[in-house]
Design a protein around this nucleic acid. Structure first.
Lengths: 145, 145
DNA sequence: AATAATCCCTATTGACTCGATATGAATTAA
DNA sequence: TTAATTCATATCGAGTCAATAGGGATTATT
């Protein structure tokens, strides 16, 4: 399960990608339909993870740190929620051993979940912000949800 | 993320499938390396979902309700954790509308997550308990984790 | 220098979930 | 009757989640 936080983060990133210019948190919050204060916290995390850059003060705001085609949904999800894998022992970026399994190499649950993880990764690490925007039907450009 | 509960449930089901006979909660707990009392609660849920059947009293225990080849990992996960999909609006079995999206048909986040859901479903609804058991290397039969 | 816009930091909230344990009642085979 | 076993209920502490509140710091504009 994605958290709301993560979903909001994805929306924020899509908005930034679609607008292609500096936007205030409030502007993003309105377009993404997300509570402003909550979004602020999210933007801080996205910045810390290097996905956006920020300018403070009047006329400040947030911008993508790379072109929409180069930012993958998987990066955003990992930045906010961590692991893509269903269980830690099947994660590549956030691996952690299980307490209840002795022979990890042989664990059938793990093998199943590795398979799941690889599928999730293939989808999310293959989908850029640009891809997401292009999914939106042409007539309705800039209405993403 | 799978909960521990769900992972334990999968292990319990694999044990039941591999043994192919009635087993007490304690017996399952030992083989699956899971806390007994916690497992009891899990077995109750699995029973309510119709995945196992149970006999009470002395010499009682738990058995699969179908052959290992007919029980899919996806069923077990849904029985315990619910939704396979990353977000409710992308779920087929547990669909729920989002508060923060107006035009669901157009939502690009949803479309991405539908893709993810379908992949997860393809894996987990395609993996039977028998498949899981067969993943275990021949030499080590009955050591699954 | 003052002002207004904006990001940033810290704290707090209530509701909920998670993983687990405890206690004992009900059921049943031997 | 006894021992084994499932079942029901309650409780626990720790943590997470989603969100809000209040105000400090920074900066462009005037």
């Amino acid at each position: 399960m994605l958290t709301m936080k993560c979903k909001y983060a994805l929306k924020a990133m899509v908005v930034l990608a679609a607008e292609g210019k500096k936007l205030s948190s409030r502007a993003i919050a309105e377009k993404a339909r997300v509570p402003v204060k909550f979004l602020e916290a999210i933007l801080t995390e996205l910045k810390q993870e290097g996905l956006i850059k920020t300018e403070r003060g009047a006329q400040g705001g947030h911008m993508l740190n790379a072109t929409p085609a180069k930012v993958m949904a998987g990066q955003v999800v990992r930045a906010i929620d961590g692991m893509l894998a269903p269980i830690p022992c099947a994660s590549t970026f956030y691996y952690k051993k299980c307490d209840d399994c002795e022979h990890e190499e042989v664990c059938v649950i793990r093998q199943a979940m590795l398979e799941v993880r690889n599928n999730i990764s293939t989808v999310l690490d293959g989908l850029s912000l640009k891809d997401l925007i292009d999914m939106s039907p042409k007539q309705r450009q800039k209405i993403f949800w």
